[in-house]
Write a protein that binds this DNA or RNA. Structure first.
Length: 582
RNA sequence: CGGGAUGUAGCUCAGCUUGGCUAGAGCGCCUGGUUUGGGACCAGGAAGUCGCAGGUUCGAAUCCUGUCAUCCCGACCA
């Protein structure tokens, strides 16, 4: 492609609306333009990158035995009512009425396609002989994001690869799950992403039933916990800690229990400021209602409750923070003054709670707190549990190493669904003994746009983007200096034709611009290999070849430059491929 | 949905506090010339319903009210 013929609007200045690197660079490099909040046009250059990523996804899905199809984005609302997801999605589900003659038809724009595919399979698969089956599509999804943000990372319309598998047994599901997991590793590695598979919330099946694929990035919306030493990685919701129940004993230097007045001082922050203590010295008492029964949950003041863990410890189906009247009932005080001493309901404590010596807690009395609170003497604990979100510095659950906390961008998710959709949409088959069984399902998603945004977010320098060869919109940028010089242009044209004949994606910067101008644009759009023809190099019979990812250029003789470039590309491709797991 | 900020030329922004000549600058764009290895220079030029609506006023980019849009923080995210 000739630069002068395509539509590639680059920008020297950073648009004020863009804050994070990927958004700024994708705008500046002419990859995308915003239409409205959460909706972006992919310009020719951005579309090429997106298509490259899409092709890699397609290749790996095919290789893993998934079969491609294409389902409608338009879906009848009825399907979502049958699975209960109309209300589960709520406002996120874009749906509306349209008129057809004298009828009104209620439609949704697909936020994902479990319903459609399950309905399809329910209608056409009825025997165990037809299973297992794994189908996928690459298609635009619609979700009414309450708050679209971070450019292309969180939008209301996005390209997703979604795959669904159907099985007669958990073993079969696990086999496909593993295949998908491996395919995902290969996909992200091929795309040049520094990815991390993490354990995620396991949902209906439990156990090791869900993994998210994350790109560690400062601007990622998700928090992930990982341990370098043991390789343990999980999202914050799910992450366990290796902490144990400590010795439950009062400290030697126990101070006397004292009641202090803290008028209108209810929050941890406010109490700390008022009493000049730190959150680590406090024990906070959250009152939950578990299956209708109030329960106190004790945590160190600076820690965050993890409701999943609390629910599991309590073996509760339903768990909610208590309302003010319940809190008044069990504490005798308004919200903000609960504490373990004299609490009128059962309570459980996190492992770190008994370690807080001479703690500050609520006094279960309006506008009062206690200081010098110590376990055993002032309140009793039989044991402790892991009830909070993991924090940096916690021991890894694998016995050694410590946990770190990083932000990540979720690019993929594999999930064992179980029979939720097959039951509600009647996707059943007859087994060998003619028993009717619901199909066991898995689903597997990849945010294709996020592959591109994730690369832009993690691979750049002061001058612009740095594409890996595998996803770069073009592999080579030919950069003739002096487009009016006949010798330069003849050579350039010959090389352009030669590379194209060998299947190389080439962009030819044929604009009549000064060298500096062209170099700045070249760096900004980040094409992996820049080939400079003309100027002082050409006078010596040399052509300058420079990788975007490296600082130094190589000078190669004009003779044999075509094959030399092909060799460089082949070597680089091999290098990138070497990082892909088998 | 709660909190905050912003809206003036394609982009970045000034002007608004304290209303007053024809609304400005840089970049980009067009014309001509000089340049040509890291976003050149000179000369000339085009480009704006000052987000929109209403109000106050002799007079509004500027003050007031409403509204829309965008961004950020938080809540939410099968």
């Amino acid at each position: 492609m000739r630069w002068s013929q395509t539509f590639l609007p680059t920008m020297k200045e950073t648009p004020a609306d863009a804050e994070i690197p990927s958004h700024q660079l994708m705008l500046r490099a002419g990859l995308i333009r915003q239409l409205m909040a959460g909706a972006y046009t992919y310009l020719p250059l951005g579309l090429r990158a997106l298509k490259k990523a899409e092709a890699i996804v397609r290749e790996e899905m095919d290789a893993a035995g998934a079969i491609e199809l294409l389902m409608p984005a338009l879906q009848p609302i009825d399907l979502f009512e049958r699975t209960g997801r109309k209300s589960a999605f709520g406002n996120v589900l874009i749906n509306f009425n349209i008129r057809r003659g004298d009828r009104t038809v209620h439609l949704a724009l697909g936020p994902t396609h479990e319903e459609v595919i399950t309905d399809l399979i329910a209608k056409h698969v009825s025997s165990y002989r037809q299973l297992p089956l794994c189908l996928y599509q690459i298609q635009t999804k619609f979700r009414n994001e309450e708050r679209p943000r971070f450019g292309v990372l969180r939008t209301s319309e996005f390209l997703m690869k979604d795959a669904y598998s159907f099985h007669t047994s958990l073993e079969s599901l696990n086999e496909t799950y593993q295949k998908m997991y491996r395919a995902y590793c290969r996909i992200f590695a091929r795309c040049g992403l520094d990815y991390l598979p993490v354990e995620a919330e396991s949902g209906p099946i439990g156990g090791d039933a869900s993994h998210e694929f994350m790109i560690p990035a400062a601007n990622g919306e998700d928090q992930i916990v990982f341990c370098k030493k043991t390789g343990y990685a999980a999202n914050l919701e799910r992450a366990e800690t290796g902490r144990q129940t400590p010795a439950i004993a009062a400290p030697a230097d126990a101070q006397p229990l004292q009641k202090v007045s803290t008028p209108n001082v209810g929050s941890i922050d406010a109490v700390c400021k008022f009493l000049k203590c730190s959150p680590q010295q406090m024990v906070k008492t959250l009152i939950y209602v578990a299956d209708g029964k109030p329960v106190g949950v004790l945590l160190r003041g600076d820690h965050e409750a993890n409701e999943g863990k609390i629910r599991r410890v309590l073996e509760a189906k339903d768990l909610q923070l208590a309302d003010p009247s319940t809190i008044f009932q069990v504490t005798g005080a308004p919200v903000g003054f609960a504490g373990p001493v004299g609490l009128k309901c059962e309570f459980i404590a996190d492992h770190d709670v008994p370690l807080v010596a001479n703690a500050v807690t609520g006094a279960n009395e309006e506008d009062m707190h206690l200081t010098g609170v110590n376990v055993v003497r002032d309140y009793a604990l039989k044991t402790t549990y892991d009830l909070r979100n993991a924090a940096a510095g916690d021991p890894s659950p694998r016995g050694e190493g410590t946990l770190e906390l990083v932000h990540g961008i979720e690019v993929g998710h594999v999930f064992k669904l179980g029979t939720k959709y097959s039951v509600s949409l009647d996707a059943v088959y007859d087994d060998e003994k003619e028993f009717r069984q619901p199909m066991i399902m898995g689903c597997y998603g990849i945010g294709v746009n996020r592959i591109i945004a994730g690369l832009a977010e993690t691979r750049f320098d002061d001058n612009g983007l740095i594409w890996p060869l595998a996803v770069a919109p073009y592999s080579v940028l030919l950069c003739p200096l002096g487009v009016t010089d006949t010798e330069t242009m003849e050579l350039t044209e010959r090389l352009y034709a030669e590379l194209q004949a060998n299947g190389v994606d080439v962009l030819l910067d044929d604009r009549d611009q000064r060298p500096g101008f062209k170099f700045k644009d070249a760096d900004l759009i980040g094409i992996p290999l820049r080939v400079v023809i003309g100027g002082k190099g050409l006078k010596e019979g040399l052509i300058e070849v420079k990788w975007r990812s490296e600082a130094e250029a190589k000078k190669l003789p004009v003779d044999g430059i075509g094959p030399a470039i092909l060799k460089l590309l082949a070597d680089r491709r091999a290098e990138e491929a070497a990082r892909v797991p088998g």
